[in-house]
């Protein structure tokens, strides 16, 4: 066992897969000797050298085009897009090329690649370096979307993403990079498309993703002291979506609250609400409530950003008000 930060877990997960498989390569801006702007690739350059851990120019289309071309010819690239906001300058490669090409070619091509990216707010970076884009990625047929919430899951889900034959968008919550936990030694391999029940309760089910997961857990503790016993589910994987686990946990309590960092419109919670309404409507004992960032660009000032992104206090207040209504 070792204490590991979320950012150290990223490098460990990548290294684990690079040691196992020579066709796994890492590329991105400043990921080599510099170790990544968020220090998520520290040590990889030293261990695997400049051929397998390669710095690129600030050319996001070239980075992802290179990953795609390499994947279709037998390699398993892990490409970094430094901030997920930058997907906007290379979204064509992601959506039109990577996501569609297997289907368009009637299965002639396979794209075993991972695109990792720092996602979300909390660092006071302002609107162009803070947004949560999981909803962008989720709505594109042909992309798998993974959002870990802790260091252990980072390693296991990174391994699962690298080993998966399909393109995986791996979103790293920037607010969690410094978070720490005990992680066992040795290889860790998880499974895509599996949600985790982190806390079992009887009154309400709180479903959260990424940086919202620790907040949901903290809120659940406070709610418990107020007499509201919550289940907390970590979604972990938006595509494939583990609806079996999530719906089972909603049915068990009869109430669903989602906690989403993405701006409100078309957030993953909207889709989950729709599925719950269609499939377990008669198990519900009250309205489905979504707790999200409002439909605004994220402001820079700490006071404003803290108001925008769901907080422990907002989760507690929203759940308790709704449960006591």
């Amino acid at each position: 066992m070792a204490q590991l930060t979320f950012r150290e877990a990223i490098a460990r997960g990548i290294a684990q897969e690079m040691r196992r498989d020579e066709s796994v390569l890492a590329i991105g801006e400043d990921i080599g000797a510099a170790g990544g702007v968020f220090k998520g690739t520290v040590g990889l350059f030293e261990e695997f050298g400049p051929v397998r851990v390669r710095d690129t120019p600030i050319s996001e289309q070239a980075i992802l085009g290179a990953a795609m071309g390499a994947a279709m010819t037998g390699l398993k690239p892990i490409a970094e897009i430094m901030f997920s906001d930058f997907f906007a300058v290379c979204w064509d490669i992601v959506v039109n090329e990577i996501a569609k090409s297997r289907y368009m070619t009637n299965g002639q091509m396979t794209f075993p690649l991972v695109i990792r990216s720092g996602n979300g707010g909390g660092l006071r970076f302002g609107a162009q370096h803070s947004q949560s884009v999981e909803n962008w990625a989720m709505m594109v047929p042909g992309l798998k979307v993974v959002v870990p919430s802790n260091a252990l899951d980072v390693i296991g889900l990174m391994a699962a993403a690298v080993r998966d034959p399909d393109p995986v968008i791996f979103l790293e919550a920037k607010a969690l990079y410094a978070s720490k936990m005990e992680v066992p030694d040795g290889d860790i391999v998880d499974t895509l498309g599996t949600a985790k029940v982190l806390r079992q309760g009887t009154d309400a089910t709180v479903v959260a993703l990424g940086a919202m997961v620790p907040k949901a857990l903290k809120a659940a503790e406070e709610l418990a002291s107020m007499g509201i016993d919550c289940t907390v589910v970590d979604v972990r994987s938006l595509v494939p979506l583990d609806t079996k686990t999530i719906l089972r946990e909603i049915s068990a309590t009869g109430r669903l609250f989602t906690v989403e960092e993405n701006p409100r419109l078309c957030g993953w919670g909207g889709e989950l609400s729709s599925i719950a309404s269609e499939e377990i409507f008669y198990d519900l004992d009250g309205p489905i409530v979504r707790i999200t960032t409002p439909h605004i660009p994220l402001p820079a000032a700490d006071a404003l950003e803290d108001m925008a992104i769901p907080s422990v206090q907002r989760i507690v207040a929203t759940v308790s008000q709704s449960m006591n209504a």
Partner: peptide, 17 residues
């Protein structure tokens, strides 16, 4: 223009292999 970077990727793969 999208396929120019993708061709780079296939070439990178050939170079690596």
């Amino acid at each position: 223009g999208a396929h120019l970077p993708i061709a780079c990727g296939a070439a990178w793969s050939a170079q690596y292999r």
